[in-house]
Amino acid sequence: MTFAAFTLDICGVSVSRGARAIVERFDLTVSGSELVWLRGTNGVGKTSLLRMAAGLSRPDAGSVTRTLGGAAVSASVLTGFQGHRDAIKPSLTVHENIAFWAGLSGSPDAEAALAKVELTGREDQKAGTLSAGQSRRLALAQLWVSQKPLWIMDEPAAAIDVAGQKIIDDLITQHVRNRGAVMLASHAAPRGLTEKVRFITLSASSVAGAAV
């Protein structure tokens, strides 16, 4: 499956968290087949920026527009989001978890998604008994079945071992090849990702008082 042409247009946006300004007059355009890598130290505001891009929060100023196949669409059509929290119900089985999200997006391939993140064989296990890394992979499968062209991922590799990282990298690569796009925040250096990568680096303003 490949995705229709789409754009995420962030134009002159200011984001704050609580009383703290994070970015001001920020511009970014993301479209298909792109990988945007957001870097920066802890607390610089990567998560807030991603939540804004995902449409979960509103910017204080500026505009965010999203188009799919030339028509303006809402965030829920365009973006899938993987946050710090995995949206997994521990008392349900792995299969029940993934099947729910697959059903919501009308995606038929819950099993295929589990296979992609190498959780095949654990379908009937309670999700609460998965390790942190396995939960993260299940969340990734949930992102996959959402069939959204733009993935916004906040530290997708947190709590994941080397083999798990390769699974993530492969999925991201495949998604970008399908003309999807990924915007992710991570401390780690890019690994085997061969696609076109853009880096956005957020750094705390060095000179106190000098910034506008």
Binding site: S14, A21, I22, V23, E24, F26, L28, G40, V44, G45, R198, F199, I200, T201, L202, S203, A204, S205, S206, A208, G209, A210, A211, V212
Partner: peptide
């Protein structure tokens, strides 16, 4: 102050 942003 808000963060400095570089895109490359």
């Amino acid at each position: 102050a808000p963060a400095n942003v570089t895109i490359e």
